[in-house]
């Protein structure tokens, strides 16, 4: 699924996007390979998780970013998140979200200064327009540009049409993962309708919220990460809703233009707690005496 946002970013930003994508992917794969050698662990060449992490980080960054920023983000994601926690299914946080959060904290200006490669309808990113306090000139926004990603923003997170296609793909192939996406998008929708950041209609405000930053990208690629999803189905919805609420609260009150990665990391931290609580509730509801009988038989 990552192919399509990559192609879209190359279409809009050309060789700049190719460089960022390539350097991110290569850094992630090399870090994973050498770290596996250092810790005496067998490296699986067929495991493409490092490549995916690199591409995801690159797609959340602007195309004009200095190349050391994606290198640092990918190194952080692999060397601090993936390898120390055991890699694969043992990683408690989404490595791509952690890598992006790291560079967002350390290099705030280059990460949130978006490129000006094409003639856009509005002169700054939708997220910054929303953050500036609701003075949005609606006649300056072309909705076709919004949903096709022809606006300022992260290089691979603008084209909403692609993400809608990805959601349809998830609906066919991975329905269980889509529960968290549905919870996340539902929470964001309700929050943006209730607490609109624009002076226009609430519907327009909600559309702008969905088209700004990497919210849709996170709903498809970050939240649905296998290793960080809760085990139980109801928990997946709760996880998505929790993540959506945190994201929208941070958008309203936080200092960063795009805080969705921080929201994902915070929600990841609560995932084991959710699983434990749900397990206890299920044990309590489903015949507590039954377990004792089984133990007695044994």
């Amino acid at each position: 699924m990552l192919i399509f946002p990559c192609l879209m970013s190359i279409w809009y930003h050309g060789m700049k996007a190719v460089y960022v994508l390539l350097i991110s992917a290569v850094t992630c794969v090399l870090c994973d390979f050498f770290a596996s050698i250092i810790i005496y662990r067998q490296y699986f060449a067929a495991d493409l998780s490092a490549l995916c992490t690199g591409l995801m980080i690159a797609l959340m960054l602007p195309a004009d970013i200095p190349l050391y920023v994606p290198v640092l983000a990918c190194s952080f994601a692999i060397l601090v998140l993936k390898i120390p926690f055991g890699g694969g299914m043992r990683v408690p946080f989404v490595p791509a979200a952690a890598g992006f959060a790291f560079v967002a904290v350390c290099f705030r200006d280059p990460v949130f200064t978006y490129s000006t490669g094409r003639d856009y309808m509005i002169t700054s990113s939708v997220g910054s327009v929303l953050q500036s306090g609701g003075a949005v000139r609606l006649n300056s926004i072309n909705f076709l540009d919004l949903i096709t990603g022809n606006v300022y923003g992260p290089m691979g997170c603008g084209c909403i049409l692609i993400f809608i296609g990805c959601i349809v793909f998830l609906l066919i192939r991975r329905k269980s993962a889509l529960l968290s996406t549905a919870g996340f998008l539902g929470a964001c929708l309700v929050f943006s309708l209730v607490f609109s950041r624009t002076n226009g209609s609430r519907f327009v405000g909600a559309v702008l919220e969905f088209c700004s930053g990497s919210l849709m990208f996170a709903s498809v690629f970050l939240i649905t990460d296998y290793s960080t999803l809760p085990k139980h189905k109801p928990n997946k919805i709760v996880y998505g809703v929790f993540c959506g609420i945190i994201c929208m609260v941070m958008r309203h009150l936080g200092a960063f233009e795009e805080p969705v990665c921080f929201a994902v990391l915070l929600a990841n931290a609560f995932t084991p707690l959710l699983d434990i609580l749900t397990g206890r509730v299920i044990d309590f509801i489903s015949a507590p005496g039954k377990g004792r009988e089984v133990k007695a038989d044994e």
Partner: peptide, 19 residues
């Protein structure tokens, strides 16, 4: 402890075996 962890790696569950 410095031998490659190949035996451990073989015992790891596949991604399809989640849960």
């Amino acid at each position: 402890h410095r031998k490659p962890d190949t035996a451990h790696a073989e015992k790891q569950p596949l991604e399809t075996d989640i849960g």
